[in-house]
Design a protein around this nucleic acid. Sequence first.
DNA 1: TTTGGTGTAGACAGACCGGTCCATTCGCGC
DNA 2: GCGCGAATGGACCGGTCTGTCTACACCAAA
Lengths: 207, 207
Amino acid sequence: MTPPSATAATASPAALAGDQHPTERLLQTAKTLFCREGIHATGIDRIIAQSGVARMTLYNRFGSKEGLLYAVLEREGEEWRAWFFAAVDAAGDAPAARLRAVFPVLRSWFEREDYFGCAFINAVAEHDKSETRLRELTLQHKGAVLGYFGGLARAAGMAAAPAEALAHQIGLLMDGAIVAAMVTRQPEMADHAAKAAAAILDAALPA
Amino acid sequence: MTPPSATAATASPAALAGDQHPTERLLQTAKTLFCREGIHATGIDRIIAQSGVARMTLYNRFGSKEGLLYAVLEREGEEWRAWFFAAVDAAGDAPAARLRAVFPVLRSWFEREDYFGCAFINAVAEHDKSETRLRELTLQHKGAVLGYFGGLARAAGMAAAPAEALAHQIGLLMDGAIVAAMVTRQPEMADHAAKAAAAILDAALPA
DNA sequence: TTTGGTGTAGACAGACCGGTCCATTCGCGC
DNA sequence: GCGCGAATGGACCGGTCTGTCTACACCAAA
């Protein structure tokens, strides 16, 4: 997912290989490579070479490439949500204003040159569809986001059931914008989504 | 993408390995395996074993695994669009009625047990994001679908620009539903999308 | 009957995969 | 300075990957 440098400061890729903890460098490097080039296409050798960490350190910390992937996703989910919620909340105190800020915030994500789609969606897409673990991790992440949307909707005066329905609709729009922006490389996909969201919100929220 | 057996008749997997042209069996088998288990995770050996075709036949016909993938996507796009447009058009003569039929039709796709998401999206997701060929193929496919939506919107009385905007919004909702249904395995995602689309259409179309 | 195109069966090559093992070095608290 | 856990660097393993090559079977047209 690659949120706008939630870890801040250490932006330079050069600095990345030098001063951080091995675990951190592994997670960071793996996240980047997994997202940009795909998980299966990224070999262990690439990860350890680019992170400047010994092979055994990876296996001691994460057990396997799969374990590393899970750790990357867990971390990425936390960081992304922290960034996203904060950015949306910064749009104002009114819940309705925050709901309307969702897609402008997403656009700022799409505009990053290191935007390569949602790590969770991409991971599910390239694995066996009967794999449950990955889908569970993804559902957990998406569930947290939907919960956040639902909370905003209720805070805006909606009842529980319609608030949940609205959260689902915004969530669908968000997933659509994420994959459309990945494929087209056009951040403006967020604007189309924002217009759609506006129509939905206008119909759902008391004026 | 796996549309509901556009090639009809030859549904049985057993029949698949027996009576068809080698080229056909390769395309069919590769499509299924690529979608269900991922492209990188599907080896040539699996494809030739399951299709009952000689290894050299694959390389004579398609040149490489990559060539096979492109052929699969091209074919899949054509078949899927043919099925989808026909199914939506069957909902009625009125353009508005057809637009509102989009997500019920998608739901019938999500309900298939061999639904594993959109082959194009999945392919882009698991390859290097600087790969242009795959993204172009995907854009071509999505462009055809957006064009279809835009045509319906104009036929429903909308001007060119707003019709195109509406097409984008429906398209985003569609992509979102496709990935959400892939991750959750819940066809009801289409219902949420349908509600969102209804709000958009109600606001856009003249009553 | 011959010939040529198409497909088959499987051995094979070379690269690369994830993962293991081990000897060595580093860094830090004592 | 000492000792010990953590990290390193690299050799190495078995397996699998894509792609090539050869020898052979079939079948229709000349």
